[in-house]
Simulated scan of single mutants.
Amino acid sequence: MLKNALFVLAGATLFYGCATNAVTGRSQMKLLPESQLQQMAVTEYQSFLSSNKVVTASSNNRDAEMVNRVGQRIINAVNAYYRQNNLSNDLSGYQWETRLVQSNEANAWCMPGGKIVVYTGLLPITQNEAALANVLGHEVSHALFGHTNERMSQGMAAQFGTNILDAFAANKTSPGVRQLFGAAVGVGSQVGLLAFSRKQELEADHYGIIWAAMAGYNPQEAIGLWQRMQAKAGSGSTPEFLSTHPGPEHRIEQLQKFMPEAMKYYRPVNK
């Protein structure tokens, strides 16, 4: 069965072609229209917010104010980077939003098109604003680099073969496709079904600390963050974040390798 699925997947890739990411330079299998994924994201995002308690800055909640502030600075950094590299057109369709929701889960995610959510349960692990910025930089990178598209493409190609586009158009409001979308983003109870690949994780780590640095946050806080993540997992209480973002053995080692580049962008800003 697995061999057949991989055969279909390979055939679909050849049929629809690959796309090269302008930032990472990696060739990616993205079989679904990004614009339609962004439309789907708006619907799923609104559905999520309507069924969860949103913590607003207007309620004088300092955590909500912090999340909004960090989110906006990361967004500004991404916009600046893409503008400086003549890639602003790649952000077409992005309508950024950042929300904090009340939940004991230690999680955060960013949907295609820039819908960002942080769970209150993550904040005791991040502990500070700079660490949160590194998380949001990581999550935004997953969205920017089409990782949701890659993961959904893989899952749908295994189910529908070369009819993937027709199947997506016909089924994008169905519970199965919506569940697949949630799993690909990192939302819901099925998040562990689609873990990000090693390449995707390295890309998100690499550029996530660059966005954080450009936003004025110390990228070195990413090291302490992942040490706390690993300690939490080792205590027998695994953060939901690690369901789709496994702590690879050499993650901190790789972050250290990326750090000199990120530090070139780091200019501290006043809070």
Rank of each mutant, 00 (worst) to 15 (best):
Q72T: 06
D90R: 15
W109H: 05
Q72H: 14
G121W: 03
V78C: 07
N79A: 11
Q127L: 05
S88A: 14
A64H: 02
L122E: 01
W96I: 13
Q95F: 00
R99W: 03
I74L: 10
L87N: 02
M66P: 01
Q127F: 06
C110R: 12
G93Q: 13
S92R: 05
I116M: 13
L136A: 07
E105A: 13
N85D: 02
W96M: 04
M111D: 03
N86S: 15
V118M: 08
N61M: 01
Y119S: 02
N60S: 13
A106H: 07
I74T: 03
D63H: 08
S59G: 11
N134Y: 09
A131L: 11
L122D: 04
Y94W: 15
N68K: 13
S92P: 00
G121H: 04
N128W: 12
D90H: 10
Y82A: 04
Y81K: 04
Y94Q: 06
S92G: 11
P112G: 05
Y119E: 00
S92M: 02
A130V: 13
A133G: 03
E65N: 10
R73S: 14
T98N: 02
G114V: 06
L122N: 07
L123A: 12
E129T: 12
N86P: 01
E65R: 06
A133C: 05
V70C: 00
G93Y: 15
N68I: 14
E97A: 14
Y81L: 10
N128D: 12
T126D: 06
L132P: 08
E65T: 09
E65V: 05
Y119Q: 04
R73F: 12
V117I: 02
L123H: 07
S103V: 13
R83D: 10
I116C: 06
Q95N: 08
N107T: 10
L122W: 09
V135M: 00
E97C: 12
P112C: 00
L136C: 14
G93C: 12
N85E: 03
A80F: 14
A64K: 08
S59K: 09
N79W: 06
W96V: 06
N76T: 03
